[in-house]
Computed example of a mutant assay.
Amino acid sequence: MTNSAAQDRPKGGKRERLGAAAARMFHEQGVEKTTIADIARAADVPVGNVYYYFKTKDQLVRAAIGAHDQALSVLIAMLEQLPTPADRLKALIGGWVDERETAARFGCPSGTLATELDKRADGLDRELADVMRQLVDWIEGQFEAMGRPDARELAVALFAAYQGISLLTNTFREPDLMVTEGDRLARWIDSLVP
């Protein structure tokens, strides 16, 4: 992340920029503390224009979930370019480690949003769970491609390790924790290759 508002500004049309800005602002400030004006400012959209696209804050939460889904699709497409399942999993871990400074400040983007949405009774938590499940399913597919009969268990263990280290990295404000865990997870992946 940079400190430049121009560089942090989401790309694309106003709707897409607002969704991406909502995801970022909810990650940095939480849903309850984030105002529509905050999102408009982060998206470089006049606040009055927000209501043309999103009538309520809950619609912006749904748009943020959509932005998470889109980002995951892009990530998976990039990872799929790598030659082996182990390479893809280690690149996923490397991407998590690369975001360690952000995790130290704000935690995992989807994990913190999931925790916050779980306290509400509007069903948005389930929509985010569906997005997160896509990543677990993709990880499971990588372990299956490695010939692992315990692919689901391994996928859950890998994702849980990431969520746990994100929490600890954020709690202790120690980005190096994520580096250490990333190295351990990469060695673990290597140990599972037949």
Rank of each mutant, 00 (worst) to 15 (best):
A22K: 07
I76G: 05
R105P: 01
A160M: 09
A5I: 11
K33G: 00
A40W: 13
R15Q: 01
W188M: 13
R133N: 07
T102G: 15
A23H: 11
T180P: 00
R133V: 02
R100Q: 00
P83H: 04
L135F: 05
T102V: 15
A20S: 09
A157R: 06
K14P: 00
A157C: 04
G19R: 00
A63S: 01
T115H: 14
W96E: 06
P10L: 10
Q163G: 12
A40F: 05
A64G: 08
W138V: 02
K11R: 13
T56W: 01
L168E: 06
S166W: 06
S191R: 13
G30R: 09
G182W: 04
A6P: 00
A114K: 12
F54A: 03
G164F: 10
A121C: 10
R41V: 00
G164D: 11
Q81C: 07
Q142K: 08
A23K: 10
L89T: 00
R126F: 10
R15D: 01
M78A: 13
L92P: 02
S191C: 03
P194V: 13
L75T: 02
A186N: 08
D137K: 04
G94Y: 02
F143M: 06
N49Y: 13
V97W: 00
K55W: 08
P83D: 04
D58M: 03
A161S: 12
A86V: 06
D130K: 13
T35E: 04
D87N: 07
R9V: 06
G12E: 03
Y51M: 09
V61N: 07
F172R: 14
F54H: 03
W188P: 08
R184A: 07
S73E: 14
E28A: 13
P149E: 14
A121E: 15
Y52C: 07
D58Y: 01
L128P: 04
A22R: 04
A21K: 02
G30A: 07
E99Q: 11
R15G: 01
R9A: 14
L79K: 05
I65N: 04
A67I: 10
A23D: 11
A104L: 08
V45K: 07
L167S: 12
V47F: 15
A86S: 07
Q29K: 15
M25N: 10
S73F: 10
L82N: 08
L113H: 12
E144K: 12
A186M: 12
D190V: 00
L113I: 10
